[in-house]
Simulated assay, not measured.
Amino acid sequence: MYVQIADDIAQQIAEGNLKPGEKLPSTAALRAKYEVSETVIRFVMVRLKTQGLVDGQPGRGVFVTKPAG
């Protein structure tokens, strides 16, 4: 399930719906949108960070970075 959600967010980034520097919705908002647990959202964030699509900033949130390429 987390792979599908990560792919959905990655697609939003690729299409420009989420732009570099833009803050992703909160964990609670993502949980509600996708109807999954916090653990699933954590796996999503790890996958997106590994792909270089987002960067977490402690105390501030998770932000879209420029995709590698």
Rank of each mutant, 00 (worst) to 15 (best):
Y34I: 04
G21K: 02
L24K: 09
A68E: 12
T27Q: 11
T27I: 13
R31P: 06
A32F: 09
F43I: 04
G56L: 06
V62K: 02
F43E: 05
M1D: 10
V54I: 14
E15P: 01
G16F: 03
A68C: 03
Q51Y: 09
Q4M: 12
E38M: 04
A29R: 04
L53R: 04
L48A: 03
I13R: 06
T50C: 11
A10V: 11
K33Y: 04
L18C: 02
E35K: 06
I41D: 04
V64P: 04
A68F: 06
V64Q: 09
A6P: 09
Y2D: 12
G56S: 14
R47W: 00
F63Q: 06
I9Q: 12
E22G: 12
V36I: 03
Q12W: 06
M45R: 15
I9E: 10
I13Q: 08
F63N: 05
A29H: 00
V36Y: 01
G52F: 02
V62N: 07
K66D: 08
V44W: 01
Y34L: 05
A10F: 09
R42W: 03
Q12E: 14
Q4T: 10
E38Y: 05
G16H: 05
T50W: 14
E38D: 08
M1S: 12
G69R: 14
A68P: 02
M45G: 09
R31W: 04
A28I: 05
P58D: 06
M45E: 10
V62E: 02
R42M: 01
A10D: 14
V64T: 10
G61F: 01
Y34N: 02
K49M: 02
K19Q: 15
R60L: 15
G61M: 01
R42E: 00
L48Y: 04
I5R: 06
A32H: 10
A14P: 07
E38H: 05
D8R: 15
